[in-house]
Structure formats: C-alpha cells, structure tokens
Simulated assay, not measured.
Amino acid sequence: MQHVRIGIIGVGTMGKRHATYLQDQLITGASLTAVLETDAERVGFLRDHLNKSVRVFTDEETFFTSGLIDAVIIATPHYDHSRLAIKAFEHGLHVLCEKPAGVYTKQVREMNEAAQQSGKIFSMMYNQRTNPLYQKLRDLIQTGELGNIRRINWIITTWYRSQSYYDSGGWRATWAGEGGGVLINQCPHQLDLWQWMTGMMPKRIRAFCYFGKHRDIEVEDEVTAFAEYENGATGVFITTTSEAPGTNRLEITGDRGKVVVENGKLDFWRLRVSEPEFNQTYQGGFGTPESWRVDIPIKGKETAHPGITQNFIDAILKGTELLAPGEEGIKGLSLSNAMQLSAWLDDWVNLPIDEELYYQYLQDKIKNSKVKKTDNNIALHVEGSY
C-alpha cells in the first residue's frame, strides 16, 4: 500500500476538524474518500462543502462495504467507539479512534482483543502526546533524572462549562448519553498523560466525585482523587467544570528532584545528591539537600491532531512506531472508571478494577438517566446523529 484512503465516522465538531486538515492535504500519504453521518442537516452541509471526490454515506453497512476506504477515524459519541472499531477491524480496516476509548473498560477490552486479532493498525487520538513539553517530562522520568517517583499532583480545573453548555443537548452530561462527566468528557488527555509520562498505574484509588454539585446535571462535575502506587508513591488528581479562572498545574516529585508544569512552562529542580543518600549521610540537624534549578530545553512544536493522524498513516505505510497505540486507551479509562466506582462504593478501589461490578453500577445509572438507551447499549442522542 502506498496511499491510505480514510473514512471519517461522525462529522460533528471533531469530525469536521479531521476532514478539514485531510482535505487541505496536510497528511502525507492519505486522503479523505468517505464520511459516515446520519444527521440529515449535517449530511446536506457535507454534500455541499466536501470535495466532490468524497462520498457521503448515511448507511453504516454501505459505508463499511463500499470498498472506498482502508482506514477509519472514529469521531462519534463515546458509547459508539468500541462497537464501531470492532466492526472496522472485522472489515479489515485500520482504526484511529477519538478519545475516550470507550465508556467502560469491559467494552474497551473487547475492542483491544478485536484489534489484536485483526492485525490492523490501531491508534488513539491522544494528541497531547505530541506536545514537546510532555514528551520532555516523560523523558526526564523514564531516564531516571527524577529518580524514583514519590508524589504526583495534578490540578486541572480549566474546563469551565456553563449551564447553557449542558442544556445545548439533551444527551449532554447524562449517563446514557455520555457515560460520565468531567472525567470522561474533558479529562481523558490528562488521565492518559498521567500514566504515559510516569509509566505507572496506581494499585488503588480513593475518589470523591460530586454529581451535579454546581450544575443541573446527573454526572460528576467535581472530583478529588487520591492514588497509591506499588513503589509507595502517591498521587492526587483534582478537576471540575465550575471554577473560573481555572488552574492547570502538574507537579511530580522524585527522590532526585521536582518538576512543575504550569502556564506552558516546565520548571525542573534537580538535587545534587538523592534525598535518600542525603538523609543517610547528613549530620547537621536542620538542613535540606542542595538543589539546582535546571533550564530544560523544549524543542519542537505540538502537532496535535494532524500529528497523531500522520503518525497513524506512517505506521500503516512505513511501520513507524505508534505514538499513541490504541490498546493503551484502556489505561486512562481505567483511572476514570476507578474514580467513579470508588465514589459509588464510598471506598477504595483496587486496579485493575472489577469490570463487571462497574458495568452493573453503570447500567443502573443508565436505567435512571434522562436519556434512555437501546437494548444493545448504544447511546440515543437527541440529534439522532453520530
């Protein structure tokens, strides 16, 4: 294969962005050849504004059997991600999926198994992994510059959403429509980066999720979570959609120093000797290890969504290593599922989580949701659209 024909499933806000840079020929080795959309108004718009060479489908089966595509970008509501990815693999197509990987880990695990059986390329749209700042921080951690991780604190409250935002769609902020609130809608990138940069998953989580605390919604709009790791490290994750102005501050401490990421800047304080060594040898009573503030060069620029798509295409055509392998989507989702389950149980939750227990609780939430579900658990949106 020398060229990849891409079909986009779901051409809402994100789907349109993907269509735009593909039509602008910003991706080498790929072109947009088809889209699948079920909303009548959007379909009319797409037929008027897409290149004439792009086929607009309204029927799912016809789209998948058209022979016009080699790969798909899935940009639908959350509940559809896993089902559509599995169907794409069954039709021999490569898959690039928007975040989150799904709503619950049970369905995502099935998607991962289908990907492995298909032998096709599978990637997640974790575009924040293209940010040179986060790449550099990951490098500092993975190469041991920070030593053993001891503490991770992330305050991410720059997700302000008004009541009018939630009222703009009857499916928004409902268990049946989206499967959660700030954790699954706004925070998937941070939850992914948390485990990707550190290379660690917690052994257990205790979370306090507040459902409809500041907005008239049924899902979580404020969360404070505490995580414990096998090596003794701890983590705190705080998020909400109701603070203004918000904060985005990540602080990671190891036994060889500390890193703070805030306002698009990385600050690194390196200890001259590790804290354990200082503690063993220092005899002066009061005192702290000598630390140096180190200027860390951040090279390159964030390529965002086109960068992940180009990496996906290069993996198909050249065998390039994926920056965001699709199978890793379950990790960040495990963190959000664990936080919700901890709040529902009012207790600690061990990881990996009890997937059946989480699924049972979620089904109960869906049953009482303002938006009802079909028998096969695919979300029904008031727009009737992907």
Rank of each mutant, 00 (worst) to 15 (best):
G212M: 09
K213C: 10
H214Q: 01
H214P: 00
R215K: 08
D216K: 14
I217T: 09
E218V: 15
E218Y: 14
V219C: 09
V219Y: 08
E220L: 08
E220W: 05
D221I: 09
D221W: 04
E222Q: 14
E222I: 11
V223L: 11
V223H: 05
V223C: 12
T224P: 01
T224V: 14
A225Q: 02
A225V: 05
F226Y: 01
F226G: 04
F226N: 07
A227M: 14
A227C: 13
E228G: 11
E228F: 03
E228W: 01
E228C: 07
E230D: 08
E230N: 02
E230Q: 09
E230S: 06
E230L: 10
E230M: 05
N231A: 04
N231H: 02
G232C: 10
A233S: 04
A233T: 09
A233C: 05
T234R: 05
G235I: 12
G235T: 11
V236Q: 05
F237R: 00
F237W: 00
F237N: 00
F237Y: 05
I238V: 12
T241V: 14
T241A: 01
T241L: 02
T241D: 06
E243S: 09
E243D: 04
E243T: 11
A244P: 04
A244C: 08
P245E: 06
P245G: 13
P245F: 01
G246C: 12
G246P: 06
T247L: 08
T247H: 05
T247D: 11
T247F: 00
N248R: 02
N248I: 00
N248V: 00
N248Y: 00
R249T: 10
R249N: 07
R249S: 05
R249P: 01
L250E: 05
E251M: 09
I252M: 07
T253Y: 10
T253E: 15
T253H: 06
G254I: 07
G254E: 03
G254Q: 03
G254C: 03
G254F: 07
G254V: 06
G254L: 08
D255Y: 08
D255K: 03
D255Q: 04
D255H: 06
R256T: 03
R256M: 13
G257C: 07
G257W: 13
K258G: 00
V259Y: 06
V259G: 03
V260C: 02
V260N: 02
V260D: 03
V261S: 10
V261F: 06
V261A: 12
N263H: 11
N263D: 15
N263V: 03
N263P: 01
G264D: 06
G264C: 01
G264F: 00
G264L: 01
G264T: 01
L266A: 07
L266R: 10
L266Q: 09
L266M: 10
D267L: 09
D267E: 15
D267N: 15
D267A: 12
D267G: 01
F268L: 15
F268N: 06
F268H: 14
W269G: 03
R270F: 13
R270K: 15
R270P: 03
R270Y: 13
L271K: 11
L271P: 00
R272Q: 15
R272A: 15
V273S: 05
V273P: 00
S274N: 04
S274G: 14
E275D: 09
P276N: 13
E277R: 13
E277T: 12
E277I: 12
F278C: 12
F278E: 11
F278Q: 07
F278G: 06
N279A: 14
Q280W: 05
Q280N: 14
T281A: 14
